[in-house]
Design a protein around this nucleic acid. Sequence first.
DNA 1: TATCATTTCGGGAAGAATTCCTAACCGTAT
DNA 2: ATACGGTTAGGAATTCTTCCCGAAATGATA
Lengths: 216, 216
Amino acid sequence: MQEINVILVDDHAVVREGYRRLLERDLYIKVVAEGETGDEGYRLICDHLPDVVVMDITLPGMSGIEVTRRVLARVPEQKILIFSMHEDMVFVNRAFQAGAKGYVTKSAAPEVLIDAVRQVAMGKLYLSSEMAQLIAAQTIPGGEQSIDLLSGREFEIFRLLVQGQSLHEISEALHISYKTVANYQSNIRQKLGATTAAQVVRIALDHGIIWSADKV
Amino acid sequence: MQEINVILVDDHAVVREGYRRLLERDLYIKVVAEGETGDEGYRLICDHLPDVVVMDITLPGMSGIEVTRRVLARVPEQKILIFSMHEDMVFVNRAFQAGAKGYVTKSAAPEVLIDAVRQVAMGKLYLSSEMAQLIAAQTIPGGEQSIDLLSGREFEIFRLLVQGQSLHEISEALHISYKTVANYQSNIRQKLGATTAAQVVRIALDHGIIWSADKV
DNA sequence: TATCATTTCGGGAAGAATTCCTAACCGTAT
DNA sequence: ATACGGTTAGGAATTCTTCCCGAAATGATA
């Protein structure tokens, strides 16, 4: 078996240290560089062109997904494995949309990461089994493109809801009955697979309908 | 120097693996057990009574801060070091309120964690320098955020709520009555000046308690 | 030590919100 | 014309939320 050159990109030094030691338990895997930010990771990847990149999503500045997109725009064959704490389908979808070759969660067993790196290096796609199960089970809030299931009116009410408006305020703003708004909310939650209001807001966040104050 | 027995509590197996290898680079430090959830960590700590606990905040169910509170209620002299990705002052404050002996962020240099474990084992308090700077910077311009009005328990439930957990799930995770959680939610909303669940989530966003996929 | 404030915990009851069912109305596509 | 989906609501049962209360534990302070 050939040697597998790997670049790690993660903003947590201690965590990176752990990956490196874990991955190098496999004698064929060699970590050739480590990046701390999205920009640094991008430069390192373009310079080294490693066999596999293990990349976190949450990074200072450019996110791991954005780095993936940019790298693949210049080096389409580059193999990038997303290794994230996010167990949300939205992230998995975005990762593969960006062209990532694999997605592994940090809660997976250590051996899974090694396996994933080897699989991806061989040109295969890799999705950790928990994530694959999530895809199979379609009860995930925000899974698939659930937001597209919303009708125009539903989407409009959805937006007002996640902005923090009360049902009463919405009914006045739209000149419809409170009861109608309440019914819409029920339908929206069902279509999105959400059981709590917070989950609905989270879906809105994931789709960029609203955003947090400290977002760059 | 005496041997330092350590217990690790973190929900990410790969990350835990990394800590273990990193910490045991120091010959006096010995990792005697690893916990994956809040409940498991609590049991392990009570059973082993290690010299130092290295604990993440974000855990399934009970948070690391909640575990800290509970452990210290029974073993007041237990030394607990919070090791979290959160660089928000809110979390540092909560950690020390709960009785933690140290707070180190995961973005700190690897040696910092080892140093922190040693300091805490010797009975000292430890705060990584970035966090110490944040404290210094925050004392002047700060100005009483509404979120500071929340008690420890209220903040704990607040976090679970905005993560999308139902009242029933929270009551099970914290082993308290549904009614208590419902009452807490009312108090939280009042203290935060929020009338809808979505507004509560927005406040959490603004304080960095949760974040959106939109950074992707 | 005694005291007072705070926090944690929950029951009861009234009121509000949510769900589920139903149905009307209106375009549009078949 | 018929069928379909979207918009609009009411009714009833259920669930959630608030506001009231109090008990127990904790913590600070005099």
